[in-house]
Structures are given as C-alpha cells and as structure tokens.
Design a protein around this nucleic acid. Structure first.
Lengths: 234, 234
DNA sequence: GGAACGATTCGTTTATGGTCAAAGTATGAA
DNA sequence: TTCATACTTTGACCATAAACGAATCGTTCC
C-alpha cells in the first residue's frame, strides 16, 4: 500500500469527496449545523438510500461528517467548524461575489425557523441567550461539551410554561445542548428540551409552521407573549 | 441543456476540479503566488504536457487559474486570493492543524530564491525597493499595470554593473514589471530586467543556486557587495 | 418471538473522465 | 523560408467509481 503523505494528495482526496454532486448536496444541506438521518440525506441528494449510505461512509472516512447513533436512526452532521469553513471557502468561489450561502435563503428564515425539531434562527438564539441570562439553563460539565443543565429555577419556569420536564428527560436523547446556528453563528437550545420548547410554541400558536420549508412565522400573539414572558422583542 | 443554478452544484464542480491528484498538485504548487508554464506544471503534476494542458484548461474554466500569454510561453497562476483561501480551507482539513502553506516552505526560501528566472524572496523585495528609492526604476504608465520604466540614472547604473540594457530591451518579453512575492506580499522586479539581474548575481557569485530547489544561497562576498553597492544588509 | 423499519453491504451495470500518442497551431530563431 | 520549441487539440483506450436492486444486519415495538 502506497501511503501518500503530501498535503496536495490529502487535499485532492478531500476535494474529490466534496466534488460529487450528491455528496455536495448532502454537505451543503448539513451546513445549517444540525444532524440528519441517512434517509433524509438520500432525499436531499436525490439518490437511493443505498447510494447515500455509500456516500456518507466516504464522507465519514474523510472526516467531513460524523455520525451519532440514536436507536435505529443514525444522525449525520458536519465534523467540525473547519469543515463548514472549507465549504464556505469553496462557496466564495462558486458564487462569485454573491457568496454568503445562508443569506441566499429567504430572509424570513433568519428570523425563526426549525432546526430539525427545535427552534432556531434569530428567535432561537435570542431565547437561548435569555434562558441563560435568566439562569434557567447553565453550561454543563466540561466533559460533556455543549450540554446544558437545567437549574431549579429553570425547571420551575419551564414547568410553569407547560413543559413536562420529567417526561422530557425520560426521552432517549440528549436533554439539552448547544446547537450552533450557522446563520447567526451563535448557539440555540437543541436536544429534547429544545424540541419541547418548539412544541410548546406551536401548541400555543406563538409560531406557525410553513408546510414546505423550515421557516416559522411568528404570530402577533406570539410576539406579545415572548415580549411579556421573556422580555424579548422579536 | 440542464442549467444547474444551485450553490451546491457550483461547489461540487469546483471541488471536483480540485479533487484530482494531478490538478491538486498544480494548484498546490501555484499557491506560492507566482506563475508557471504548462510544461513546468506538467512536471509538478507528473503527467504528460498534453494531459497537463487538459487539466489546466479545466481549472481555467472553473476560474481557479488564469493564464497570461508571453511569447510562446503561457504562464498559469491562481486566479485570485479567494482561490488560495479556498485551498487553505481544504488544507486545514487535510493537515489537521499543521496548515499554513507558506511558512511550511523552508525559512531559507524566504531570504532569497528564484521566481521563474529572476530574483525573489526578501532579497529580491529589498533590491526592488532600493532600486525605486535610488530612482533607478519608476512605475510606468497607468495603462500598463505593474510595468516599470528605467530612468536615465538607472540605465547608467545597471550598465555600470555590467548589464547590457539595450540587449535586454531587445528580448521579446516584458522589460521590467512588478512580480508579487507571495511570502513577502510585496513586489520584486520581474521581466527581462529581473532575469538580467539574477544572471548578473549568479555570474558575480553574489548568490549560488541550489540545484534541486528554487532556493538561493547568498555568499559572503555577495553580502559585502550588496551592502557596498546598494546599502542593503541582507 | 416476529413483524416493521431504518440503514448498510454486496454484486452488477454503466458511464464519466484521466491518460497519452499523434497531429495541429503558434511563436521565435536561423 | 525553414526549423525548433512550447503548447494545445483530438481520438482511442482504459480504470475508477457512481448507481441501484436485493439481501443482510440491527433496533424497536407488539
């Protein structure tokens, strides 16, 4: 086996991994920072699940994506910010001066949107910051990067809003974690707690879901509620 | 013809262009910022001139390199800093943390080296600045970007050093131009005059050439001469 | 246990694209 | 003009890898 150890060879392998339409579509889709299953990505890439699996395996070999098993699902996501950085470098070339991939999405996506199953966009980030400022959540232990602990006050507050924390904790997934929002470049609340918050916001009609996109519309009622309850003007 | 107009498609085409070993070698080689002929690049890429030509044509289509015809030579160089930026983004992934392409070249390259057929590196840049300060060369007309004019004093001075200016002018190539030095990020003297200066420096044994690289060694004699003649400590 | 589902592996087909020899074009030198 | 050099284009060949159906593996839910 001929081991290549020159930088240009390493670059070419990585670029080749990106340079296949189906794989590029997957990576581009994952640039919003959240994980997706191989089936979801096969739809995005417009290939069969079998083909998507092969592609994802290759991307994993090249350290472009990482995978996290969760029950019978396997969630794929970009393996680090450097990967997003490299993709952005390429997109600068791709788009000429009109780069900036995220702003190319409708601007309403920036205000509020779903990120897999939780609340993202400017609203998601604002809430995240507010929850921290109010002392409802706090950064978890060092060894569990990005995880959040719920404080006693936070538990009471979320319960008061109508979220069943005990049941949320019982779900087989990370309870609460920092999910990096690519357009905002700042984290919002992900995990089971994030999902519960989105569910609540939808149930209470603070936001309404766009059927064929990840965009969320904030209702006037929701705007008032968020201002009153969290002191946030959105 | 199905026109793709999504960013992921554009990214994949560009990444595919980079993701071929021979092309990656060419691009990586051009990251030092100076232009090379297709023949030179065919050696770097370890393919035949014909194959190199095909590759370079594709890189040109993707706006990764640009070409500048000069007599029967065609000089290829990276098409803009964005390209170097994108390549660096990839090299971060490729090399882990050991990226930084330019500093990876031996530090002696920074002192003095050849740039195609003329003198580059810190010494080349210093001399360029000194020639301007002494009023030997001056920036040419606006419409000939990067070209230099030789002043009357400069003509006398170079003639006194032993450079046949009339003959140098007769060569079918740009007489004198600013050649951007990637490691220094500042220009040195290129063109026929630059080549004549290097030839002189080699003939007078101010510098000696490393056989298997572009590095130049400055002799003690050369150090003294450059100090005496130009007032430069190198 | 077994049914249902998600995901991966295997085997085969197909096509894209890298390769170079040879011919062609363009420029410079004698 | 003629030759030499630098480079590109063309055409034919071949290897790599992308694609999918079918079979398999692994997990969850009755």
């Amino acid at each position: 086996m001929n081991v290549e150890h020159y930088a240009d060879a390493a670059i070419s392998k990585i670029a080749a991994a990106i340079g296949e339409p189906a794989r590029a579509r997957m990576l581009y889709c994952l640039m919003d920072g959240h994980a997706r299953t191989s089936t979801e990505l096969s739809v995005v890439a417009e290939v069969s699940p079998a083909t998507a699996s092969v592609h994802l395996n290759r991307l994993r070999m090249e350290r472009l994506v990482k995978v996290q098993a969760q029950g019978k699902h396997r969630f794929y996501s970009l393996d680090g910010l450097e990967v997003a950085g490299a993709l952005e470098g390429l997109s600068v070339l791709a788009g000429g001066t009109r780069s900036k991939f995220v702003p190319s999405t409708p601007s309403r996506l920036r205000a509020a949107r779903t990120c897999y199953d939780h609340l993202a966009g400017a609203v998601g980030v604002s809430l995240h910051d507010r929850f921290q400022a109010l002392g409802w959540i706090s950064a978890g232990a060092k060894d569990r990067a990005g995880a959040y602990e719920l404080t006693i006050g936070g538990t009471r507050a979320f319960e008061a809003l109508g979220i069943d924390i005990e049941m949320t904790r019982a779900l087989r997934r990370r309870f609460a974690c920092a999910c990096l929002d690519w357009s905002e470049r700042r984290p919002h609340v992900g995990g089971a707690l994030g999902a519960a918050i989105l569910k609540l916001a939808l149930k209470r009609k603070w936001v309404v879901q766009d059927l064929d996109s990840r965009a969320l519309g904030i209702t006037n009622y929701g705007r008032r509620e968020i201002l009153n309850r969290f002191g946030l003007r959105v």
